[in-house]
Design a protein around this nucleic acid. Sequence first.
DNA 1: TCCTATTGTTTCGACTCGATACGATTTCCC
DNA 2: GGGAAATCGTATCGAGTCGAAACAATAGGA
Lengths: 186, 186
Amino acid sequence: MSESDEIAVILERLGRVFQNDAHVAGLKPTQWEALRYLARANKFSRNPKALTVYLGMTKGTVSQTLNALDRKNLITKKTDMIDRRNVHLELTRPGKLLLEKDPIATIRKKAESLGKTNRSALSGALKQLLGAILSEHDGRAFSVCKTCRYFRGRAAGGNPHRCALLDAPLSVEDSAQICVEAEIRN
Amino acid sequence: MSESDEIAVILERLGRVFQNDAHVAGLKPTQWEALRYLARANKFSRNPKALTVYLGMTKGTVSQTLNALDRKNLITKKTDMIDRRNVHLELTRPGKLLLEKDPIATIRKKAESLGKTNRSALSGALKQLLGAILSEHDGRAFSVCKTCRYFRGRAAGGNPHRCALLDAPLSVEDSAQICVEAEIRN
DNA sequence: TCCTATTGTTTCGACTCGATACGATTTCCC
DNA sequence: GGGAAATCGTATCGAGTCGAAACAATAGGA
């Protein structure tokens, strides 16, 4: 078996193990990912559309997942008053609290035990792999706001950060979060 | 975000992307994994029990998945005549043919494009990670028969290979395949 | 022979997921 | 301004996943 084969098989298998581990606290793996995403996405990206792109699923499926989370009172949905087709998603307090039990922590701990050299190599190679796959997948990289070409840092006068694409102000918090619109600066 | 966090997030995300890709030819991701396993497992390991351990799922779920594959005529189930509780699983010809469309190939190609150095690093680190996780998971490593401590290679007289644990003969093919019982030599 | 462990199957309920059809808006363009 | 087209989200369907729990059948030991 070639090295590439091994990588493919192990990645597939790791994915399965993680997914099995993710049946925690009555939530399904997908629901955990949605919760996690909402915790890390900035205000422009906390909507069903962005989540759909992020997860790479169809909007119908995402809609159902969000319904399930809503029923459990882990998120709220609010119609945008300016464009009433849009929906804003927010974690509720129980939702935020639940994230402390996020099963992804077990993966992190395992990565921790890997040793610095191996860990760096793994992190680098995985990033490259994910990038290669997403680019061919029309999925965006979903990088952090601050690194986006449309990000305008706070000027000398103490003005807030701004997004030059959406022409909107950005809190310090927002600018450190994930954004659907993010385009890597070149 | 620490390197370990990044690794955890990317692995989770890669798993999702792969899983989405695995909806091919009318099969679900789990069904593909079962098929793949059966193609790579030796005769002692082509049964529901071993598959259950390999996939890390409950036997009920596995039973259903196997039923689905049976309905599609991709596998056969046959009761063991010696111990009638056991079931032998085999790929049918259509099952084997279908494996040529295995969506895991797309992952392999991506790994291919990674470059030798990165690829080796990734392969090594992933193996270590999977090992660490499985060991804590009471999941076995499922290594290849030949590397097992119970493997007895063909003697000078031209006798067949043998498994000293099950006290059974091994074809050349079997001994190159995955075995549930495999225990790494020390 | 009875007791117990092993191996699989069945059933249940909640959820996933793609596909498809819909329902509101909003936007574009004549 | 008004109608078509695009956008964003929801509802429904069918096959499947998945854990949990109950249930069968068989094997093996006391």
